[in-house]
């Protein structure tokens, strides 16, 4: 199961069965719909590294998704 956590959204991690590697962007959008999270720009992090929407995810990947905001 791939697990996607939408940080700062107040929702629980969304598990998603990914049999064959899929693009992160697709996975994140699918999970966002499932979690009822309105997705704007985002920053995704896997094992402490930023990963892009083109990255392939599979297996037991755990992805943290942060809203792409800025300081002020």
């Amino acid at each position: 199961m791939v697990k996607v956590s939408f940080r700062l959204s107040g929702t629980s991690a969304v598990p998603l069965s990914v049999d064959v590697p899929r693009r992160l962007d697709e996975v994140v959008h699918q999970c966002a719909i499932q979690a009822g999270v309105e997705l704007g720009g985002y920053i995704a992090v896997r094992k402490g590294r930023v990963v892009t929407g083109e990255t392939m995810v599979s297996g037991e990947d755990e992805i943290d998704v942060f809203p792409a905001i800025s300081g002020g």
């Binding site: 940080r7 700062l8 309105e38 997705l39 704007g40 720009g41 920053i43 992090v45 402490g48 930023v50 943290d64 942060f66 809203p67 792409a68 905001i69 800025s70 300081g71 002020g72």
Partner: peptide, 22 residues
């Protein structure tokens, strides 16, 4: 705008988790 609306709840403090993660 989902980004602006997030500021309403957490303000810029939301950046702590983001910066820590990256």
């Amino acid at each position: 705008n989902p980004v602006s609306s997030l500021f309403t709840k957490y303000g810029t403090a939301a950046m702590v988790d983001i910066c820590q993660a990256v």
